[in-house]
Computed example of a mutant assay.
Amino acid sequence: MGTLTDRPVTTWAAAAERLGGGPRDLTVRNVVRTAVGGSGLRVRLTNAFGDRPVTFGHVYVGVPLAGAALEPGSNRMLTFGGSPEVTVAPGATALSDPLPVPVRPRHRLAVSLHVRGEAGTLTGRNRATAPAYPPPGFGPKRLPGDRPEPATAPAYRSVPGDHAADEGSGAFIEEVAVWHWMDALTVTAPAPVSAVAVLGDSIATGVGSETGHGWPDLLADSAVRRSPPLAVVNEGVSGGRVLAAGTGRPAETRLTAEVLTKPGIDTVILLAGLNDLGAGARADDLIAAYDRIAATARSAGVRVIGGTLTPYAGAEYHTEEGERARQEVNAYARHGGAFDALADFDAALRDPADPARLLPRYDCGDHLHPSTSGHQAMAAAVEVPPLRT
Rank of each mutant, 00 (worst) to 15 (best):
T5P: 09
V9H: 09
A13L: 10
R18A: 15
R24I: 13
D25K: 10
T27F: 15
R29Y: 12
R33G: 04
V36E: 03
G38H: 02
G50C: 05
G50F: 09
D51T: 10
T55H: 04
F56S: 03
V61M: 08
G62D: 04
G62N: 03
L65F: 13
G67E: 00
A69T: 01
F80A: 11
P84S: 03
G91N: 07
G91P: 05
S96V: 05
P100I: 02
P100F: 07
P102D: 05
R104C: 01
L109F: 08
A119E: 01
G120Y: 14
R125K: 08
R127N: 15
A128G: 06
T129Y: 12
P131T: 07
A132H: 00
P140A: 01
P154I: 01
V159I: 15
V159Y: 12
G161S: 03
D162Q: 12
A164R: 06
S169Q: 08
F172P: 04
E175V: 08
E175F: 07
M182W: 09
L185T: 06
D201P: 07
D201K: 11
S209N: 00
H213W: 13
H213E: 08
W215C: 10
L219P: 00
R225Y: 07
G239V: 15
G240E: 01
R241S: 09
R241Y: 09
L243E: 00
L243W: 10
V259C: 01
T261K: 11
I265L: 11
V268Q: 03
D285T: 09
L286R: 04
I287A: 02
I293F: 11
A295K: 12
T296Q: 12
A297I: 07
G301Q: 10
L309D: 02
Y312R: 11
A315G: 15
Y317F: 14
Y317Q: 14
E320K: 12
G322Y: 04
G337K: 08
G337R: 10
A338F: 15
A343G: 14
D344A: 11
A347S: 13
D354C: 05
P355Q: 09
P355V: 13
A356H: 15
R361S: 06
D366Q: 03
P370V: 01
A381F: 00
A381Q: 05
